[in-house]
Design a protein around this nucleic acid. Structure first.
Ligand SMILES: [Zn+2]
Ligand SMILES: [Zn+2]
Ligand SMILES: [Zn+2]
Ligand SMILES: [Zn+2]
Lengths: 169, 169
DNA sequence: TCGTGTGATGTTATACTATAACAATATTAA
DNA sequence: TTAATATTGTTATAGTATAACATCACACGA
């Protein structure tokens, strides 16, 4: 019960009322600052892709991004999108969602974390939460068998609370 | 500490010494029995695909399976492999591993479960474990935000104990 | 300032993964 | 038997991702 409070604190914007304009500018600024701090280059195409990901909390496929880049006057061959996405993912500004071959902006780019995604099959929005703890089944099992985890994928698909309430019956 | 014992009990064959011939025949028989019990048809192509998946604990891509089907005289258009795999996955005889677009035979086809995969980047074997409990971070978070989970993807990639020991230095 | 090395982008081509659509056949049940 | 249903055969195409190599931009020491 007390744990839930903490967990809730980590729930990203999607599925929750929030000031999304503020959400966007906050994350955009965070990215700019982090790049400066770390000597990374947030080039025009990289910045544009991050902006596209931040526009909503719905995940975008690489080819969705490619179309939008083209519409904005960028070069639009697949490697352009994939390279920008690789940069954003490698540096923690975005995550790849394996289940749906899509990408979302990270909601906590400052903290190293293992993201957990809840993918709503109805509204197609995605909520990001994360675990910093070593208490997940995954970590416990890995330790038990001596497996050294480099990266984790934790995703759930189903219905978000809002869509469930809106459901017939 | 006591929990680890239970967790270990769920670890599948891969990464552990085991009688793999027995492992294969056990799972093959389980599939045949379950199909009989449930009125499912383990047709030749479906049985062949399951055999291919059971041959090792390494995951196979759909097109790997397609080649092997062709080599065994089966028709070899993509839908043939995908349909057989869909049947096996839908009925719990195999799982899809999202991170690597590949398939493995399930190691506990009798029990409904949410599988967890540990994918070794060196030997490319995969160990399946599972959680029946509602105690994972995923379940706790889902309950906290009212998200209704239909399916989960939990995968870790890294190095298995054996490969880590074999590593230079 | 000029090279020079590094990283980033441009571009073509291709590889890999998956499904739509419809025809043909086999199985099951009325 | 016949009709409904499930499975398989086949062609074509959609969707996702990367290899390879050319060119360009920028940082930094000479
Ligand atoms: Zn927002
Ligand atoms: Zn994140
Ligand atoms: Zn085995
Ligand atoms: Zn399983």
């Amino acid at each position: 019960m007390t744990a839930k409070k903490d967990t809730l604190g980590l729930v990203a914007g999607a599925f929750r009322q929030h000031d999304h304009a503020k959400c966007i500018s906050l994350l955009m600024n965070a990215a700019r600052d982090l790049c400066t701090e770390r000597g990374l280059r947030l080039t025009p195409v990289r910045e544009k892709v991050l902006k596209l990901l931040l526009k909503s909390h719905a995940p975008l496929g690489a080819y969705d991004i490619l179309s939008e880049l083209a519409a904005s006057g960028f070069r639009a061959q697949p490697p352009v999108a994939y390279r920008a996405l690789d940069f954003l993912v490698d540096n923690g500004f975005a995550h790849r969602i394996e289940k749906i071959n899509a990408f979302v902006a990270c909601s906590q780019p400052r903290d190293k974390h293992s993201p957990i995604f809840m993918i709503c099959n109805d509204c197609h929005q995605v909520a990001e939460t994360s675990v910093r703890s070593q208490s997940s089944s995954l970590d416990r099992t890995a330790r038990a068998i001596g497996f050294d985890i480099k990266h984790t994928v934790v995703e759930a698909e189903g219905l978000c609370a809002e869509c469930r309430e809106r459901m017939p019956q």
